[in-house]
Design a binder for these strands. Structure first.
Lengths: 214, 214
DNA sequence: ACGGTACCATAACACTGCTATGCAATACTG
DNA sequence: CAGTATTGCATAGCAGTGTTATGGTACCGT
């Protein structure tokens, strides 16, 4: 199929340039001719490697998922799973704020293929495991971790998209983040005081992981 | 400025055709030439009336806000403000499911002009008033209604966008809708039993307001 | 009735994704 | 090792896009 090494180089170059162009100049900059100029090839390379712009966008989308997984992994596991979960929430926000255009492409565009949905669900596996741990140690009442994860993700995703559309300010997001976290965690069964302290400790843990423009 | 009546007719025709094309065939169908063909004029009409495609898209956006306001207004005010608030949540979802492309254009695109943000905040005035009523009658603890409204909107918006991106299923949305509502309302100070009953009554009230394709 | 103005139809420009064609270099095959 | 087959990309072109410049035309105020 793809025996030569140089082919993979061109493919990776297009993917890297695509993610970079999208992140820095927005979706309008993601054109075949621009990609050809950036990678020193021609527009046809996009078709041989991705079948067209839609295919390349889908690949960039997958790249965004893996980048998100990376953000989740910088959160270390402690003996306070609620704090870990909150920290992942902040990591999620940092990823979105650091790469807003990529976040848009990944989570707001309608999926080209169904395999993207599978990729997305795989990316949130670690938060789901953390929620399961919250249940195991008795912080949350027994429940389906996936069901709780949906609520947590909805809260984070809703805040991020509201922020990206300029319908919420950053201050509102920060305030709501803590408030919604408390309300949800207490609703899940956690003690109000413990929930508040876990959320604050997460904020402390993530303070130095400030978002850096990519 | 605009003395003749026919001018307004052309403007309204473009706007109506724009909203219809966007709703039925998606953003790709929203082109100058297509609009010209639909309204029986030429591409220049878009420029005289809206200054370009961006201006027309912005106008369609505003149309989407007013349509949302209309959905809120079909919810009658009762003596249970928590039920009213939940019913508006369902109305919000119905609007989004009935006009997904319009919802995308209104709430997911980055705002062209800041006046759109003001329009959006005006559209959610009625839910905010309802939250204020929840506080007045003692169902919610004293708080800034806007602060609580942000959390409610974030929950609804997050679920809708997750649904539109095929990252959530309709079943997940319906389940989460009730669960998040309960968790948030109880966090706001409501009695768990009362919250549950109000949400269920809202679901009952809105049962016949099923979303119809536009 | 006439000047002025606002509106729109026509045509063109630069740009987009995409396809057909051909060439060059690689990989298989005897 | 020679010859062929195949893969990958460069070139050029097509149909489509938003936008602009240029006219013409119908209206409005006087």
């Amino acid at each position: 199929m793809s025996p030569r090494v140089a082919d993979q180089d061109v493919r990776d170059g297009l993917l890297e340039a695509g993610a970079r162009l999208l992140a820095r100049e927005g979706p309008a900059a993601l054109t075949t001719r621009r990609l050809a100029a950036e990678t020193g090839t021609s527009t046809m390379a996009v078709y041989t490697h991705f079948g067209g712009m839609d295919g390349l966008r889908q690949a960039v989308r997958a790249e965004g998922f893996t980048r998100l997984t990376g953000y989740f992994e910088i959160v270390e596991t402690t003996d306070d799973p609620v704090s870990d979960l909150s920290a992942m929430g902040w990591a999620y926000c940092f990823n979105a704020v650091a790469n807003p255009q990529l976040y848009r492409a990944v989570f707001l565009e309608p999926p080209i293929g169904e395999e993207d949905v599978a990729l997305g669900r795989a990316a949130v596996q670690r938060p789901i495991d953390t929620i399961a741990r919250c249940i195991e140690v008795g912080r949350f009442d027994p429940a389906e971790p996936e069901s709780l994860a949906v609520q947590v993700w909805v809260a984070g995703h809703g805040m991020i998209t509201g922020l990206l559309a300029h319908l919420l300010t950053l201050d509102e997001v920060i305030e709501s983040f803590s408030a919604m976290g408390r309300n949800l965690f207490v609703g899940f069964g956690d003690d109000p005081g413990k929930a508040r302290r876990s959320i604050e400790s997460a904020q402390e843990r993530m303070r130095d992981q400030a978002p850096s423009a990519d």
